[in-house]
Design a binder for these strands. Sequence first.
DNA 1: CTGAACTGCAACATCAACGTATCAGAGAAA
DNA 2: TTTCTCTGATACGTTGATGTTGCAGTTCAG
Lengths: 195, 195
Amino acid sequence: MTETTTRDRPLRADAERTVRTILEVAERVLGEDPTASLAQIAAAAGVARTTLHRRFASREALIDAMAVHAFRQVEEAIDVGRPETAPPLVALHQITANVIQVKSGWRYTVGQPQLRDPEAVAAHERIFTKGHLLLDRAQQAGLLRPDADLEWARRVYHALIEQAIQVQAETATDPDTLAAAVVDTLLNGLGPERS
Amino acid sequence: MTETTTRDRPLRADAERTVRTILEVAERVLGEDPTASLAQIAAAAGVARTTLHRRFASREALIDAMAVHAFRQVEEAIDVGRPETAPPLVALHQITANVIQVKSGWRYTVGQPQLRDPEAVAAHERIFTKGHLLLDRAQQAGLLRPDADLEWARRVYHALIEQAIQVQAETATDPDTLAAAVVDTLLNGLGPERS
DNA sequence: CTGAACTGCAACATCAACGTATCAGAGAAA
DNA sequence: TTTCTCTGATACGTTGATGTTGCAGTTCAG
């Protein structure tokens, strides 16, 4: 019985939990060893291997589902920071902290190079756009140089967040502290105060 | 005949080339698909699968060899920039450009999380130290804030280089231009000039 | 309560990747 | 030229991952 992503009927409550558990455990296991087998993942999740196959037709399907799940959470993390309405500096800080928080829990998935699932791709694009928009507002508010390349800015911002996530993984630092460091570095760099 | 890394006699010239070709092709193929089989790699390299096995006992051995090869090149790229003697700003720019150049050709290998081969680990540590040292000199020269956290600085520097590499992969920009952007962003950030 | 959904277990089939061995021929190296 | 190394081709055996099926027992939902 080949199971596809779309279902005629909604999952039962316990099955829903099983799915979520598998997704979260898979993230952890694959984060430790990207070549881990589905059997290992199933065992770590405390379910039979057949159950995993029942929910996810193949390894690819599982990873795709993880991507959708993760990117939805990231998008949510951005949205609650009101990127369009909150004062740019506030939104910048808040969103940075939120994203660091969420992405820390989905390092493997988010780090995957290629997105196969169209829904994941769509979510990723929305996230991309929202980040761009946020930086655009920051620029218009004078937080970024008027002549700054927004594409480069977005990349730098992204890279700084990645670093913050690594720091968090190693030292369990408060997300707000990290967000402050990210924003400060993004805007001011590490050079001396200029007169 | 299980072949180990150490050999009694040096490789013949043509065999030496074969090894290098395999390493370089493996980087490219695995970069496109990290799950590519050894057979695919061998085919792409234009050698028989048995030849690949002759030179590299296992998949792990191959990847380890790639790591050693790549990190040696990165170290070389740093060294020619005279990180200990050249004026800090010059060294910073030069080394940044060199490293971007080299790392661009070894994205997959350098991006690998865990280093098994002790030689690769050693090289990585030396690189790590040299980067730290460079930033330390930069700080003493007043390029970085006196109170800047050098560990965070190193991370940021590293992250910016990674981004530059991605830009290069997509737009084939001149390494010097990218290095300038990296150094400028590192020191000044993207915020407006402060009075 | 009762049917439907869900899970674990066991068994099975397939298959690709891996690793090894052998040998004949081509090609460096001396 | 002669020796030794290297390579390609072929063939084989092993193993682990993957995917499927059937069924019996459990648990949710209405």
